[in-house]
Computed example of a mutant assay.
Amino acid sequence: MSRIDESLPFIPLRIAVLTVSDTRGLEDDRSGDTLVGCLTEAGHVLADRRILPDEREAIAAQLRAWCEDPQVDAVITTGGTGLTGRDVTVEAHRDVYEKEIEAFGVIFAMISFRKIGTSAVQSRACAGVARGTYLFALPGSPGACRDGWDEILSLQLDYRHRPCNFVEIMPRLEEHLRRK
């Protein structure tokens, strides 16, 4: 089973948070607040925080901008992962991905199923990598954000997590771009 190797140093990541909502502002963004609290309590750094409406091109543009920013290691979005006509976060993410991390959505669904039963089938949580930056899309509820953080991201974004984690492979995410 997975574990934290306390003999290794913790490496803080710079993480940006994007809330996708047509109705929320910073004053009532409970899901964004949840993610910011989780990542800072874990010792990571909040690199940036934004709220954007459910507009595919705007979401993709913000994701690309953060992928180009050397001060951002990872991005977590919340909202827009459902099935309604305005839910376009997943499509925006996939517009940006170089590689998708398919198991992220599967594991998130397994976690959700334990908590909300078959309603978990409505979530389209996803993750991928672009320009050496991790991109994670979580549903728009604080509970889903807490579940995604506590049961997946807190471990995979911790260099000390064994047997493996996302942090240890970060230096190799763009190795295909190096000249031979």
Rank of each mutant, 00 (worst) to 15 (best):
V36R: 10
Q62A: 14
C126Y: 00
P9R: 12
M110T: 09
A47F: 09
L18F: 02
H44L: 01
L8Q: 09
G80L: 02
R124W: 05
V167Q: 10
S7T: 15
K180N: 13
G80M: 03
G148K: 06
T34N: 07
R30C: 13
L173E: 05
R50E: 10
A16C: 09
V121C: 08
R131H: 13
T78R: 03
G25Q: 08
L135G: 01
L39C: 04
V20T: 08
G43P: 08
C164G: 15
C126T: 14
V72D: 10
V129C: 03
L35F: 07
E168P: 02
T23K: 01
P12L: 02
V45I: 13
T77M: 01
S112F: 00
R114H: 11
G117T: 09
H44F: 06
D22I: 05
C126A: 13
G148Y: 06
E55L: 08
W66S: 08
I51L: 13
R24H: 08
L18Q: 01
G37S: 12
H93P: 00
Y159G: 12
D33R: 13
L138Y: 06
R146K: 15
C164Y: 15
C38L: 10
A127E: 07
A109G: 11
V90M: 00
A130R: 04
G82P: 04
P139K: 05
R14A: 06
D69W: 01
C67I: 07
T77S: 10
F136Y: 12
L26M: 12
C145S: 09
L18T: 02
Y97R: 09
D28N: 15
D48P: 04
I152T: 07
V88I: 11
L157T: 05
A137N: 15
A47G: 10
R86M: 04
P53W: 02
A103D: 12
M110S: 11
I116L: 10
R49D: 02
L52W: 01
P171G: 07
A120P: 06
